[in-house]
Design a protein around this nucleic acid. Structure first.
Lengths: 232, 232
DNA sequence: CCATTGTTTATTGCCTACAATAGCAATCGA
DNA sequence: TCGATTGCTATTGTAGGCAATAAACAATGG
């Protein structure tokens, strides 16, 4: 399970000054869930976790309520709180919504793009080409993430950023999530170039469509890993 | 403020069997917020509210944590929980994201549309035309709502529905929200016809764009009511 | 041998009580 | 008179305890 003893330092007042115990626990739990230390379907035992964090059950329960609202766990009355398990069907739904939001990012960026941004984006593309050529999968993933992060953040639309990240998080809980991107590293980067080209053109609709399609294609790659599934 | 005494019936087991006290309180609070009985900026006094609901502070705190995650309230440590006040800037952000999601609804519906659906949609349009002609604003709003609800729900994408409704809710908390739709009833309905026509054509991109633009236009109408605002 | 019914136990739901904090008013010194 | 300081009070943050529930098991009857 999880190993260290992070017993919240009551002394470390600097942290608790701004964020409550609940907030600290919530972030910690979210981390445990997203890193897979708490697996989909697993139950969150209140007593066990609260002693783990060195607090009482109150703040822990508040933290899990918050995570429930964010869709990371689900609660069944008198049974407990469980890490959510996102079905393939729901994962496909999420891909679509994420595509729409990412498409909006493209549309907004088409009006904001400037030389500095394009330079930065091209640097990303070159870096990813390089990594793709060396077939070093582990290195590709974080850069790819940073690339998307940079794009989304650059829109200046905080609501969009929060939503996008929320969906990326939820997709981590999808069952049957083989290493989706596995094969198509250079394929994916060709799509990235299309996106940047669309931005450079300054054409809103074209950029929106390019961004939208990029996510839709990764949805298709995801679906192709499902073939055997029944409860889609 | 709020007036009745809904003291949760401990006897009414049917309700508590499935949903917890927290859940009941959460729905109740959400209702109070969305109907404006609890106004943006107003503080939610724990003791006052928990005695109002006839419970202790625990479940109430859990409910407010959930509402916090949903973005309906914000919490300041040692100060309390306050109904969120959505700034014009954030409202504009939300309009964009909502437009993207609604655009997705159009795109999805273009592939699902059939005669039955078109008949239903045209009935909506006729009804709204009629109301618009009689300039009966109060009647227009609920039908307009039902129309959009029908569209979004018909996509079959539950994630999309939840997100869309979440944003509609948040926009209720926007400051400076004059009766946005006020003037353009028939204008709005012309856009509705464009949407339905686009669906009937079966063209994905066209439908997406029509749906997207509809929300963008209501964003513009919203912005035009702001002119004097400084902290946009 | 299986199904049904009691019993036990781990765990959650909720509540009460105490500690800590922030805002305010009264007080004090300049 | 004015500002800073100090206590007071309302309110939130957290802890721990009791009651209620559900799942697992044992006992009983067919």
């Amino acid at each position: 399970m999880y190993h260290q003893e992070p017993k919240v330092q009551q002394n470390d007042l600097t942290v608790l000054r701004t964020s409550s115990l609940t907030g600290v626990i919530e972030r910690e739990l979210e981390h445990l869930i997203l890193t897979g230390e708490l697996k989909p379907g697993e139950r969150l035992n209140e007593i066990q976790l609260s002693t783990h964090f060195g607090t009482s059950r109150g703040p822990l329960r508040e933290a899990t309520r918050s995570l429930q609202a964010k869709g990371l766990v689900e609660s069944i009355r008198n049974r407990g709180v469980f890490v959510r398990s996102v079905s393939p069907k729901e994962a496909l739904e999420i891909y679509d919504v994420r595509a729409a939001i990412f498409g909006l990012a493209g549309r907004l960026l088409a009006d904001l793009v400037n030389d500095q941004m394009l330079t930065r984006l091209n640097a990303f593309l070159d870096q990813m080409d390089e990594i793709a050529a060396s077939k070093n999968f582990d290195d590709y993933y974080p850069v790819n993430l940073a690339f998307h992060d940079y794009l989304v953040t650059s829109t200046g639309n905080g609501t969009l950023v929060r939503e996008y990240k929320g969906f990326v998080n939820k997709l981590h809980l999808a069952r049957a999530r083989g290493l989706v991107q596995a094969g198509g590293l250079s394929v994916s980067n060709r799509e990235h170039r299309e996106m940047v080209d669309a931005l450079a053109s300054g054409n809103r609709e074209r950029a929106q469509e390019a961004f939208f399609r990029h996510v839709e294609r990764s949805k298709i790659r995801f679906r192709s890993t499902l073939d055997g599934e029944t409860d889609v």
